[in-house]
Write a protein that binds this DNA or RNA. Structure first.
Lengths: 240, 240
DNA sequence: TAAGCTCACTTGTTATAACAAGTTGACTGC
DNA sequence: GCAGTCAACTTGTTATAACAAGTGAGCTTA
C-alpha cells in the first residue's frame, strides 16, 4: 500500500525542488542529513538521491555534494536548418559558444564509411566540438567530413559549420537526413558532458548530402536529455 | 585505476548481450548466481544489474528475474506526417496495432487550455491510446481535442487519427508544431509501458492547427526511449 | 606570504543480514 | 483429475558497518 521509503523521500525532495525550496544549482542535504531528517539508513537516503539523479533533477559530485540540475531546457528548431544554432539559443536568452576539441584526418570507421558511401578506412576528417550553453557544457558534436570537404573547411575552423557557411565556400548542402534518438551515457561522454553513467542523452544523428546526392557529412550531436530538446514545425519559416 | 566491481560485471554482461550470449527476451543470471560467479556480495551483483536496467538493456520483474530488453528500435518518420503510423511500422517489419484506452469529455487543464487558446476548464475531449509494436506496449498517446473536433471524431474512434482521416471528415489540419524531448518514467506511465522508474522516455508533444490558424489538437506521444526514435528528412517525400 | 599538510565532510564502493513480496512448480488432499 | 497449499526461488526494501576517494577549509611550516 504505502510506497517505499526511498520513493517517499525523493518525491518530497522533488516537490521541494519544484516549489523552489532548492533552486537551480543549490546543494541538496547530504546523505547524512537526510538520514537524520527522515530517520532512515544511509542506503535509503542514498537511494532517494539516486532517484533524483536518474531522473535528471540532480547531479552528485564525490566530495562536494548533490546539486540541483539547471531545469531550463534549450530548444533547437529543426524546421529551419538554415538558422544558426547561435540564433536559436539567443532567442531563448541563452549565452551560446562552442569550442573545437579536435579536427584531424582519420581513417573512416565502418559505420562512417557506410554513411558516406566510401570505402572502409578511406580518409575523412574527424571534427569534435563542444557546445556551451550559459557556460555549462551542453552538447558534444562529433562529425565526419569527406576528405574534400575537410580540406576546404579547415581554414574556417573558428566558425560554426552551418549550411550558409558551407554554401559560401562552394559546398552547397542540398538535403539532410536525420534521426533523433535517446541513448545513455557511457564513460566516454561523461567526461565532456558531466553526466552520470546511465543518464539519458539525446542524439541527433545526421547525414548531409551535396547537390549531386553525394553524402558529404555524417555526424551526431549528443546532448544532455535534461537540457536539450528539438522542435519542428510544418509552417514554412516558423520559429516556434 | 581499476573500475568498480559492479561496472566490470555489468560491462561483461553487456558484452555478452551484444555478442548474443543472451538474446532478446532471455533471462539473465539471477543475483544469487552473479554473486557466486563473480564472488561478490549481493549489493554488487544488484548494482551491476541496475546498471543494465538504467541503460535500458534489461528489465527486472520481481519474482521472475531479469530479462534482456528487445533491442530493435522503431523509427517514426516526421518528414512525412501524412504517412500513416502503421505504414511506417510496416516498412520496418513491425506488427503495429493500437487500442483506445479512454475517450471522454473533460475540463481542460491549465496547460491544455493555454495550448488550445481556450479558457481554463473549457470542455475538451481527452483521448488516450496505446500503441503496440510486435505485441508489446510501445507508446502511449494522450491528446486533447477541442470540443467540436471531439464530437466529430467520436464515431471514428476505431480509426487512427491521422491528417487524411481528419481532412476526410471536414477537419483539415494545416500545420503542426512539435517538440521532441526526453523525460523520465514516473509511476503513472510505468503501468502502461512497463518501464522502471526513472527510465528514459521520448515525448513527442504537438499542437495541430486548422486552416484558420486555430489550434484544434494538443497532445503528446510518450514512448520508451529504447524502443522508439524519430527521423526526418529535408527531401520532400523521402522515406529514410 | 606562499606552499604544503591535515582534518572534517562529502559521495562511492562493498560486505553481511534480514524480511517483504511476487512467481512458479510441485505436492497434497479431496 | 483438480484445486488448493506450500516451498523454493526471484527481485525489492531496509539496516548496520567499514573503508576508499575527492574536496575544501584551516592550520602549519618554510
Amino acid at each position: 500500500m504505502s510506497p517505499p521509503l526511498h520513493i517517499s523521500i525523493s518525491e518530497k525532495l522533488r516537490h521541494q525542488i519544484e516549489a523552489g525550496v532548492y533552486a537551480s544549482g543549490d546543494r541538496l542535504p547530504s546523505e547524512h542529513q537526510l538520514m537524520e531528517t527522515f530517520s532512515v539508513s544511509r542506503i535509503t537516503a542514498r537511494q532517494a538521491v539516486a532517484n533524483l539523479v536518474s531522473q535528471g533533477l540532480a547531479i552528485a559530485y564525490r566530495g562536494k555534494g548533490v546539486f540541483v540540475t539547471p531545469q531550463k531546457k534549450v530548444t533547437y528548431s529543426l524546421s529551419s536548418p538554415l538558422v544558426f544554432l547561435e540564433q536559436d539559443m539567443a532567442r531563448q536568452g541563452v549565452a551560446f559558444s562552442f569550442e573545437n576539441l579536435e579536427f584531424e584526418p582519420v581513417a573512416a570507421p565502418r559505420d562512417v564509411a557506410a554513411a558516406l558511401e566510401i570505402g572502409k578506412a578511406s580518409p575523412v576528417y574527424l571534427q569534435k566540438k563542444l557546445f556551451r550553453m550559459d557556460g555549462a557544457a551542453g552538447a558534444v558534436d562529433v562529425s565526419y567530413l569527406i576528405a574534400d570537404l575537410g580540406e576546404r573547411f579547415a581554414p574556417l575552423l573558428e566558425q560554426q559549420m552551418t549550411f550558409p557557411t558551407l554554401a559560401q565556400h562552394g559546398i552547397p548542402i542540398d538535403c539532410l537526413d536525420a534521426v533523433i534518438e535517446c541513448t545513455h551515457a557511457d564513460y566516454d561522454l561523461s567526461g565532456y558532458l558531466e553526466v552520470p553513467l546511465g543518464h539519458a542523452l539525446m542524439v541527433y544523428r545526421y547525414t548531409a548530402y551535396s547537390s549531386n546526392q553525394q553524402p558529404v557529412l555524417y555526424g551526431s550531436t549528443i546532448s544532455r536529455a535534461d537540457r536539450f530538446c528539438y522542435s519542428l514545425s510544418t509552417r514554412a519559416g516558423a520559429s516556434a
